[in-house]
Design a protein around this nucleic acid. Structure first.
Lengths: 206, 206
DNA sequence: CTCCAATGTGAGGCTATCCTCACATAGCGA
DNA sequence: TCGCTATGTGAGGATAGCCTCACATTGGAG
């Protein structure tokens, strides 16, 4: 969990100690957001979990929103990286493989960064446009993938199709929190199949 | 917007005036939840919008959660009604018609009851089990529909399939807030097609 | 008309949370 | 070693929101 720029607002850390603290704070915030949701977690709680004082927290993150944005931008970078790899490999894959890779990419990423779900929900009401930017970029990547895998699709239908695939990915992630595991696996497998069917249909358009 | 039982907690209205007030309060709450989300709207705000005093509000709804539950159970009843009609008519429809009806039912319902989206998000953290119950019932209805429309599907795959269809409906509803309208319509049309493809595949299983 | 339960009212108590500030400590560079 | 900036600290001011309470008003039943 690297720290990078805390960007606007909070004083950015310059010494080694500061970077460590920022990382610890972000990690603590992430855990809290997962456990109780963004609105329900308090700054005091985050500081306590990071074993820092409330003042120290405010030194780097002047508001709770700043924390959310920092975490969100980290996650966005991570996901974008994976999407670029996905785009690069798309030409080598069959439709079934592509569907499997898409689902796995999103589901795995959510497993490794559970806070992203909670944060994505809040992204809309965030002061910055980070939420829009992230969704937009994701749609761009999916459009690229579709353009590669289904070259015959008309340009006008590319974005709607990308939006649908995006929603299907969101659905796959949502299924991740179902119990019991057997049912969840079965449902995710079905969803992947539905995606594959849709992709196949897209690839064979007049 | 009928009032029914305010169930536990708040004293139930008995006179005509009381019922009217409860209805007004619920309507006001609904509007506020849509505009600012559940967490962000305050009891004072709701009372003000209903042109009632804060004390009057608390007389019928002792907590904000009670309001959410009352609204949620109203919406659940409404949706259940539509689902029963859907189940009854399923035998008469082709796969394409079924897909169209499913999508339309959910999208229309959300248009007429915009608060349900905001409330569904909170349902999970509600003290009662209303959230679970609603999702569960919805899955039951979808299972029934699938069992009717695709009788050859093995019993074990019925619930996973219902979960997938449920997620696709959620996706259709989510697309409803996309802009511009042209793009939204196109995406929803694509999603409907994806659903139809999936249903077709379900109906023709070994 | 009278009575009383239902309903209406809003000031204010209470708590929780955000965030500031004045001061303490640490540790890098000279 | 010394000085200076980055970092650390937590009490407390300020605000906001939930909810109570003691009292006022209303309107149906007898």
């Amino acid at each position: 969990m690297s720290s990078q720029k805390t960007s606007q607002g909070g004083r950015a850390p310059s010494r080694r100690r500061g970077h460590e603290r920022v990382a610890t704070l972000l990690s603590a915030a992430s855990t809290c957001f997962v456990e109780k949701g963004f609105d329900a977690t308090t700054m005091t709680e985050i500081a306590a979990r990071a074993e820092a004082s409330i003042g120290s927290l405010y030194q780097f993150f002047p508001t709770k929103e700043a924390l959310a944005e920092a975490l969100l931008s980290e996650h966005a970078n991570g996901l974008n990286e994976r999407m670029e790899r996905l785009v690069a490999q798309t030409p080598d894959w069959t439709t079934e493989e592509l569907a499997a890779r898409l689902v796995r990419t999103f589901v795995d990423y959510r497993k490794q960064h559970p806070a992203m779900v909670a944060l994505t929900e809040v992204a809309g009401s965030l002061p910055s446009m980070l939420g829009r930017t992230i969704r937009q970029r994701m749609r761009d990547y999916l459009s690229q993938i579709l353009a590669i895998h289904a070259p015959r699709i008309p340009a006008g239908e590319l974005r709607p199709a990308a939006m649908v695939v995006q929603q299907l990915m969101k659905a796959a992630v949502a299924l991740e929190s179902e119990q019991p595991a057997t049912l969840r696996k079965a449902a995710q497998s079905q969803l992947q199949q539905a995606l594959a069917l849709y992709l196949t249909e897209l690839a064979s358009r007049p």
